[in-house]
Every structure is written in C-alpha cells, then in structure tokens.
Design a binder for these strands. Structure first.
Lengths: 137, 137
DNA sequence: TATTAATTGAGACTGAGTCTCAATTATATA
DNA sequence: TATATAATTGAGACTCAGTCTCAATTAATA
C-alpha cells in the first residue's frame, strides 16, 4: 500500500486518520491546499476525522518533512508535498489568487550572506511577492 | 498640533479616535506594534476607542502610507511608521522574538528581474528569514 | 495476546479581525 | 455661525483558523 509506506518512509506512525488524510492530499496533485480543504475532502469521502486530528496530522507531516507550509499572508497556511519539488518562493496574484513558483539561487545566496553578516542562523525563509499576474493587468 | 498635521499630511480626516491612536503609536517610538497593543495603550490612557475603529484606522493609515504592515508569520500583523525608515526586510529570531532589519539592494534587484521574467507586476513583497540570532545560539 | 504509549474525537475555547447599523461627528457650504 | 451631507464611530455579535482537554480508542512491542 503506497500511503502506508509513505508514512513509514517519514517515520510517522500509521493510523487510520493519517492514512485517510494522505489519501485526500494525494487527490490535490500539485495544488496547494489548506487544512480546511483537507477536512472538506475527508467529509466528502465520508471519512470522519476530527478537525483536531487533521490539524495535528498536518503539523506532524510538516515537522517530519513530508509537507511544506506556504505562507501567502492570507491569514492561514497552505501546504504542498515537500518531495515533489525542492524549495522555491512565490509570486502571488492579489486579483485571481494564482501562485507562480520561482527559484533563484542568487537570491538565496544573498540571503545567506545577509545572515552571515548579522551572525544570524537561518532555519527557514519566506519570500513572497504580491501583485498582479500578466493575465490580470 | 503635531498629530493633526500628520493626518492632514496623509489626507486623512481628523477625528478624535484617530488622533488618540496616533498619539499611542507615537509612544511606541521605533518599536513594531500590533493593533491589540494599540488598543491596550488606548485603554491605559482612558481613551474609549472601539476595537472596530482601531482596526479601521490602522488599516486606513496603512493604505495612506503612514504605516507599513509587517508580516512575521505570527498569525497577526505588526506595524511600523512608514516614514521613519524606508523599505527593509526582516530576520526574526524564533527564540527571543527579536526582529533584525536589513536592506539589500541586490536582492531587491533580483526580485524585480524575476518579476520581469514572469511578466508579474509586483505591488509589495515580504522577505522574512526565521532562525536564531547570535545571542540565542 | 497483553502491555504501554501514542493517538483520537467532540466540542469548548482562543485570538485576530470583520460586520452591522443606528447614533454621532467632521467638513463643506450658505 | 448654522445647516446639510457624508464619513465615522461604538457595541457587540460574528467569523474563521487554529488549539486544548481528557476520557476513550488504537497502534506498536514484547
């Protein structure tokens, strides 16, 4: 079973709620999703996982490196499968909500340089550019 | 009166609640503050400004360019006087909560380059590096 | 299979922020 | 200065994401 081995791979104990959550997340493919969307997906599929457990599981998955949280400044977090792509940053269109991903090694390097200069030890960073995508102009 | 002229300067209609809010904000000096902190400051000073009005005023001030919101990913926004310093980004220490500001023109330029490549029209951006400051290691 | 430790569900709770709408107040004009 | 009009306010109910508690359940392990 694919989902079971996915959990062992990340040393996460296998429980029914967690497997159901993984399965819903699988349906999102590459789309970013919120915990509330996962909950809706569970309800649609008749899975009775509590709100508390969904939040707990998704936090755990993020801790363990299976998911990656994305903060678009919307007042709640989105998530994505961490393994599907490596770290990247986001352009976020205020008008249509589109998320454009980008990766820029030179920016990352300059960030490291800033940290060295300030003797700051980075754990993670968020770079989000908000504006209008080409379709929305 | 300094606060009154500050409001006219930004074409903001002068009302008692807004003047009281400006006065509380003045007391924070260069410190970043949340709306709830402003509310506390108002209560301490016996000013009876409603929660709704405080949020409305501070949003308006941000629109008009008097304040600048800062999103440290804490689940609520902080603000700072926009005029006191120009745009900058933040290092945020998870352990002690310290905020270290930095400005890096090369990073800004690379961001613009990314936007041009994606035909994206930036309105604002947030770059936040989270980690441990030198004191907290 | 029994033991032990981790996990779960229900729902109350929190905290930031928004909304409504009648009452108040600021500004523009006469 | 008085008045008309438009903007602003306050009270508190509400929303929404997320957390907490704790008894009951379930997973891993021996």
């Amino acid at each position: 079973m694919k989902n079971k081995s996915l959990l062992s791979q990340y040393s996460i104990r296998k429980t029914r709620p967690r497997l159901q959550i993984i399965s819903v997340i699988g349906k999102f493919k590459n789309r970013h999703f919120s915990v509330e969307e996962v909950l809706k997906g569970l309800r649609r599929g008749k899975s009775k996982v509590s709100r508390a457990s969904a939040y707990r599981a998704i936090n755990l998955f993020s801790q363990k490196g299976l998911l990656r949280p994305i903060d678009l400044g919307k007042g709640f977090l989105l998530y994505e499968r961490a393994s599907q792509k490596s770290h990247h940053d986001h352009l976020y269109c205020i008008n249509c909500g589109k998320i454009i991903e980008f990766k820029d090694q030179s920016i990352e390097k300059l960030q490291m340089k800033v940290c060295r200069k300030k003797r700051f030890h980075p754990k993670s960073h968020t770079l989000r550019i908000t504006g209008l995508c080409k379709e929305c102009l």
